[in-house]
């Protein structure tokens, strides 16, 4: 049991590093906005950890990624916005881990259709929650800095939606692909 705990910690840590890395390697992401927010593959390692270790692993990996993102390029405009954009947004990706058992058993039994369904559900849930956090963070930010009478929610929706939606689809497809091609590697933990 002890042994698993150390492996859990190390794996979550390394995959959080992996996520950050995928985000900062230039040729692996498509920059949409100069202020941060790009279509990147960075959510994939977090989802993999979530499907491997469940909710706790996913939330932890996401949280670590968020903190590192903050350490590396801080974008603090309003305290509440910083909290939402870094601490909350990345952590909630881990909610994909709610579908861990379903994904694992489908992979074990080789039921591709089931696997696809639950991987899609998990990644969409995680990415949607992250989007929500960025969306509210955006409203807080624009609310503070834009002049009065501007439709702040619309700015935030367009800004955050423009990179989150493609990134979500891309990650979901690639996570499914990885589970499909390499089920043995991804299931090792059990």
């Amino acid at each position: 049991m002890k042994r698993k705990r150390t492996l859990f910690m190390v794996e979550v840590a390394i995959f959080a590093a992996f996520a950050l890395l995928l985000d900062i390697i230039p040729f692996l992401s498509f920059k949409v906005w100069a202020q941060g927010g790009s279509i990147s593959l960075a959510m994939i390692p977090i989802f993999i950890i979530a499907f491997r270790w469940g909710l706790k692993g996913g939330l932890l990996a996401g949280f670590l990624w968020g903190v590192m993102q903050l350490l590396i390029e801080p974008r603090i405009f309003v305290p509440l916005q910083a909290f939402l954009d870094y601490a909350v947004a990345f952590t909630v990706l881990g909610f994909a881990g709610l579908f861990r058992n379903q994904v694992m058993s489908a992979t074990k039994q080789g039921k591709t259709a089931n696997m696809l369904t639950f991987i899609l559900l998990g990644t969409f849930l995680g990415a949607f929650l992250r989007f929500t956090a960025h969306f509210i963070g955006g409203i807080v930010f624009f609310g503070e800095y834009a002049p009065e009478g501007q439709p702040v929610w619309l700015y935030s929706l367009l800004y955050n939606g423009s990179y989150m939606l493609p990134a979500m689809i891309l990650s979901a497809v690639l996570v499914f692909f990885l589970f499909h091609k390499q089920p043995r590697t991804l299931m090792n933990a059990n």
Partner: peptide
Amino acid sequence: LMMSISLRFI
């Protein structure tokens, strides 16, 4: 500790 491992492995 996890944070340090992460940073070390980047």
